[in-house]
Write a protein that binds this DNA or RNA. Sequence first.
DNA 1: TATTTGAATTAGAATGATTCTTGTTCCAAA
DNA 2: TTTGGAACAAGAATCATTCTAATTCAAATA
Lengths: 152, 152
Amino acid sequence: MSPSTHRSSAKPSGLDCRLAVLGTDVRLTPHRREVFQVLAESTDHPTAYDVFNRVKGKSPSISLATVYNCLEHLTAGGLIKQVNVERAQSRYCANLHEHVHFHCDECGQVSDAHPKADFDPGLFWQLPAGARITRTDVAIHGVCPTCISKKA
Amino acid sequence: MSPSTHRSSAKPSGLDCRLAVLGTDVRLTPHRREVFQVLAESTDHPTAYDVFNRVKGKSPSISLATVYNCLEHLTAGGLIKQVNVERAQSRYCANLHEHVHFHCDECGQVSDAHPKADFDPGLFWQLPAGARITRTDVAIHGVCPTCISKKA
DNA sequence: TATTTGAATTAGAATGATTCTTGTTCCAAA
DNA sequence: TTTGGAACAAGAATCATTCTAATTCAAATA
């Protein structure tokens, strides 16, 4: 492998360009940039392993551990979101618009569902008295249109 | 271990008393009954390992594998519910009333939150056109009253 | 420019919850 | 009484993820 295969920055300013939408800032190293790019180009909520395989196209030497590491830092920086469904392997998502996920129980596909109206869980459920709510995870399960038409 | 330590049924009809609220029916063997009992007496959403330790009081010879097996069958029979938060180990719950869970991000405690009003996810999120919804998982995260008072 | 420092990266080992496998035990029907 | 199938136990296997230790790199400092 040539020494310049990776760690080459697109910006002349080197690696020290930090970016964070929320949370701690992240140094956008070439690997992190590639991992982010893969997610930004994906709408299918890939797993860490999926990301690994896609990034290998650009950086054949990248390791799965680095992908996990990049995903962790990008998540901490608020650049991507981790999506967990039941106990299946985590998926990742670069859609930062507020949304929840729809999971097809037939094919496993995960798709985004964007908000139509403000949602306040306190209106629907009796929460422990005095609790402070920080966030609500909503996962909608069902059968996607594709699977419905396949069965018909 | 005496041969009658377990497999002794409370009912004279032997093991063949089946029960199911929803889903496939479950043979309520003594082990399954004990696992269910432990959950029915718990409000803290124990993990499989917690259940294992509690059941060992009555059936010291039970194995963790059997506990997992019992939990699986009881879940399939709709007698208990599996509660998954992020990718942490599964917890189990014998509260069959419709409810969601509140998770304290400080102490990890999980508590039930019962419905106050009908909740229709389709009103709040734009779902894939033509999708059929089967269920919605709602997990509310925050800080429980106990942890709030500890920090004050 | 050379050195230092700390983060990024890598490969592989370790972890840990869960599932699987295999052999055994038991119940109930034949 | 025999037999078939489920329940059970013990431990191995799985597998996503995390950790470890060693290396490489980039930016700051000397």
